[in-house]
């Protein structure tokens, strides 16, 4: 398993912490599923420790914490939020999210590269939420990122992997870089597909938090991710157009 800035993930599910029916259900979803990383947003909860009670609960989950800059639209906002996150959670990790489009929540990749550079120079370890664009990926790596997190589909849309061709190309282009599918996952089959493509982890939130039974869905995701990872490592067969019988058909006494 690839390491994320030197850290091995206990489990390749990175699970968001927003929108659960209650903190108790959030906690149960983590404990029961064994998700390895909790992503947490700081921006809406406000500065000056106002979200402290909730953040303390997240810290007590005992999983790795990946704070994010969700809801930021400019480099300046993102950098400020990242600094706040480092103080609150005492971690250099930051999921860098810079929204460029209101309806699709598509990342603004130009500002993303700029912010990644600023934060890396500040000593952060940046997990950039990006598109499947290879050149942007290269620029992010050049800016100091050691992980890339392309979207599967727009945030919260639950559409799965919209562009498997490009995601496969990205995997092939950056074989040594830890790659995470971030956003757009709706079903365990989507998460499994991401891992079958050779991705190293999956980040999701809405698909679990807004499911009728978030705890069951978190478990389903973890199992699908494990299945996809095993399948990838097992070197799956190639798809073909015609049947290939698994037992010989020539030489049988009777041919149907």
């Amino acid at each position: 398993m690839k390491r994320f800035y030197g850290t091995e993930l206990p489990n390749p599910l990175m699970l968001g912490t927003a929108q659960y029916p209650s903190p108790a259900i959030l906690e149960q979803a983590f404990r029961t599923s064994g998700a390895g990383v909790a992503t947490v947003s700081l921006r809406r909860e406000g500065a000056e420790g106002a979200g402290a009670a909730f953040w303390k609960m997240i810290q007590e989950l005992g999983v790795l914490i990946l704070p994010n800059t969700a809801g930021c639209h400019t480099v300046k906002e993102a950098v400020t939020t990242a600094h706040m996150a480092r103080e609150v959670f005492d971690t250099r990790w930051i999921k860098l999210e810079l929204i460029g489009h209101t309806d699709s929540l598509q990342p603004d990749v130009f500002q993303l590269v700029e912010a990644a550079k600023v934060l890396t120079e500040d000593g952060f370890q940046v997990f950039p939420y990006t598109t499947e664009d290879l050149i942007v990926g290269e620029r992010l790596l050049a800016a100091g990122c050691e992980v890339l997190m392309p979207w599967g589909a727009p945030i919260g849309s639950g559409r799965g992997l919209n562009n498997t061709y490009a995601l496969r190309a990205m995997r092939a282009e950056f074989p040594e870089v830890p790659l995470v599918i971030d956003a757009g996952i709706g079903l365990p089959s989507h998460a499994a597909q991401a891992m079958e493509l050779g991705y190293d982890a999956v980040l999701l939130n809405t698909a679990v938090a807004r499911a009728g039974d978030p705890v069951a869905m978190a478990c389903a995701m973890v199992r699908a991710i494990e299945a996809g990872r095993l399948a990838h490592e097992a070197d799956p067969i190639e798809a073909r157009d015609m049947a290939e019988a698994s037992t010989p058909v020539i030489g049988k006494a009777f041919l149907a």
Binding site: P23, R44, E45, G46, G51, A53
Partner: peptide, 13 residues
């Protein structure tokens, strides 16, 4: 519904 204990003001958002 915000997981925050800042009761001072509404935000613009």
């Amino acid at each position: 519904m915000i997981e925050s204990e800042d009761r001072r003001r509404i935000t613009a958002r």
